[in-house]
Design a protein around this nucleic acid. Sequence first.
DNA 1: CCGTATCCTAAATGATACTG
DNA 2: CAGTATCATTTAGGATACGG
Lengths: 119, 119
Amino acid sequence: MPKTTSTNQRNKIQLITDCPMTHTFNLLGNRWRPIILWKLIEGLQSPAELHLAIPIITRKMLYQDLKELVTHGLVIKITSTSRKHIPIYKPTPLGQSLKSVLRAALDWAEQQKTGAEDA
Amino acid sequence: MPKTTSTNQRNKIQLITDCPMTHTFNLLGNRWRPIILWKLIEGLQSPAELHLAIPIITRKMLYQDLKELVTHGLVIKITSTSRKHIPIYKPTPLGQSLKSVLRAALDWAEQQKTGAEDA
DNA sequence: CCGTATCCTAAATGATACTG
DNA sequence: CAGTATCATTTAGGATACGG
């Protein structure tokens, strides 16, 4: 039973129909998903590998965001059929298609860092 | 007087030196800044115009995010020297340089929406 | 109309302990 | 290792009222 399905629910609903750009940032605009997806696109596969590549992430957020990436169809989880129960995660075609966005974000940042020398 | 400058501060510090991509998403990865900046790039200038273009944003967030965009050097606020005290906001070159990132995010979303018909 | 301050709720994240 | 649950804290966002 929702306690407050009243006033501020209108914003949430409209958020869906918002500018398409918002949709992209809803998928990628949190603290860890961009990097996780990027690392997956780069070829990393297991949670352990990811955690090595992104040491400052907590285990909770790593698994949580991996799950959300799977939920959103950007990543698939393949539970290893071999005896070791170490799964691999890899981007779906949809996830791969976000590479250009991530690339743009990354390029921009690197360019800033480079050009900031003579500021 | 910081009450807890202890344990979880280490993450914040490291966040700065994080993957450059994170930096981009720190600037753009919230609910409103991408659209606001996009609209500014499209040529809208006054808060009133922006509010018309993005009706569901609250005034608080509009002004707050405008201020943050200014703080981060992506937008400049030009306080009108004429008698009417209506300022104009416009992207700085740095802000303009984010157009490619926003464009990528927008293109991706539109492409998804288009291709989703025959899913 | 511009802009801010205050209060409040909700969402995101971290710390930690636990299971398989 | 992989993955989840619980708790506590932080942060973002909205409602609202106020001042220029």
